[in-house]
């Protein structure tokens, strides 16, 4: 029975990804639709970052520190790896300090 669940899960997820990519193959010319699609990535990432990052750690404060440190490093145009790593270190150190206090 579990394999039926896994099959439904995998097929549904794949079709959600594959159908739009294979059906709409032409270049969209309408400028509003093109603007919309241009804005989707930035909107989607922003909506996923905040406020979820605040609840991704053990405490809302360590999540906020992780976010702030990431923004700071991103403002200095550091690479993806550096920004991601500094954010992890910030969260780890913050939570360590919080258990000490």
């Amino acid at each position: 029975m579990i394999y039926a669940y896994i099959a439904v899960m995998a097929i549904t997820t794949y079709l959600v990804r594959a159908l739009p990519l294979t059906i709409f193959r032409g270049k969209i010319t309408n400028k509003y639709i093109r603007s919309f699609l241009k804005y989707v990535p930035c909107a989607c990432l922003s909506a996923m970052i905040f406020p979820s990052i605040l609840f991704a750690t053990n405490h809302i404060i360590s999540g906020a520190v992780g976010l702030l440190v990431a923004i700071l490093f991103a403002l200095r145009n550091k690479s993806l790896v550096i920004v991601a790593a500094s954010s992890c270190v910030a969260v780890y150190v913050t939570e360590l300090l919080m258990t000490l206090i």
């Binding site: 930035c42 991704a56 750690t57 999540g63 976010l67 490093f73 993806l80 790593a85």
Partner: peptide, 16 residues
């Protein structure tokens, strides 16, 4: 927990 934040950090690095 700390490693779990890596993905958010990457998003920030792309958006900012």
């Amino acid at each position: 927990t700390a490693l779990g934040v890596a993905l958010y950090g990457m998003f920030v690095a792309i958006v900012v």
